[in-house]
Design a protein around this nucleic acid. Sequence first.
DNA 1: CAAAGCTCGTACATGGAAGTACGAGTTCTT
DNA 2: AAGAACTCGTACTTCCATGTACGAGCTTTG
Lengths: 192, 192
Amino acid sequence: MEEPSARPRRRADAERSIARIVSAARTLLSSDPNARTDDIAKAAGVGRMTLYGHFGTRAELVEAAFTDALRAGDETLSAIDLTGNAREAMTRLLASSWQVVAESAALLTAAEEVLPAGRIRELHAKPVQRMTELIRRGQDQGVFRTDLPTVWLVNVVHHVLHGAATEIRAGRLEPDDAAEVVTKTVQSMLTV
Amino acid sequence: MEEPSARPRRRADAERSIARIVSAARTLLSSDPNARTDDIAKAAGVGRMTLYGHFGTRAELVEAAFTDALRAGDETLSAIDLTGNAREAMTRLLASSWQVVAESAALLTAAEEVLPAGRIRELHAKPVQRMTELIRRGQDQGVFRTDLPTVWLVNVVHHVLHGAATEIRAGRLEPDDAAEVVTKTVQSMLTV
DNA sequence: CAAAGCTCGTACATGGAAGTACGAGTTCTT
DNA sequence: AAGAACTCGTACTTCCATGTACGAGCTTTG
């Protein structure tokens, strides 16, 4: 899908710049989805022109940052053991998921403003699939409800995670309580 | 709270213009939170200058539209009978609520971009209180869980409603199924 | 019916962010 | 060490939506 390493290949300093830019973009956009490219360049310790040399448009930059965040999230979540009892696996998955979601909530907003909905969905494929498989497995095991469409269950879990992120940002939920609250909520949601 | 009818009083044609503008703003902003004031004036069948005569800034206009939507929502929801068994009352409340939320989801986004968070919260006070009271009553009756903060329960219900709105917009949930799906989800969420 | 209150077109001012142009200097790569 | 690749400052150019100014002509209201 991506160009794995097409073209003449980049010089080492260029790679470094790009990495710093993407990282800065992730940071800034994660706290303000409207962060200006200008500020991102500054935060990356790089000239504005350098940034434009690598990312022709703001949209490209946002996409790169978003993709990177998803990659990082996937790395975290794919380390979790999801075998055995699906209910317990879900608890383990949620314990890490809420943080991943919370960290990049604003970044997602930025992406939604700039990328077509289909692209966003595409990039989300992995986490969605992970959750879908787990829920399906739970349904097969008879521990999760089957009276609602699986797609809905998957998505509503995501909405609850985003909800928790919002509540934390608004100061109405303590980060320390998040895992427990989210888990209890989701677990009963998955039960009739 | 508002100025009930302060000042010399407006002329009849002004009242009419304002009503048309607010209504157009509600419509446009409910489908595109970034709708331009220009387009709103056009849709209201009113000159741009007339609009600016009544609303000094875009923010004022958005607030007026948002307030009006909340007023309309409140009108709908306050007609619902919430007495008796809290669980059944909740089902009745949700049956109407999901639509109200879905209709103005984009408008809420517009408001969030332009109004301070506190103001939004303030304007939401009524619906929040309605839901809070119902949940508390259910807890007293012993039909709703008490192992999670009531504030969280109230807010997570809102998030689920918004989630349903999103799924509908994305074509992943049929409007006809919404009420059932939302109800089932929320009811089990409110149970241990 | 007259004054006050509204409407609304055209034209302009403002402001913010995106993206471009140019070109001199620096760092890699081979 | 030479050429290619990259950096990056400064100074535009564009674009687009918000908000203003001015003023002629309609409605309401009392």
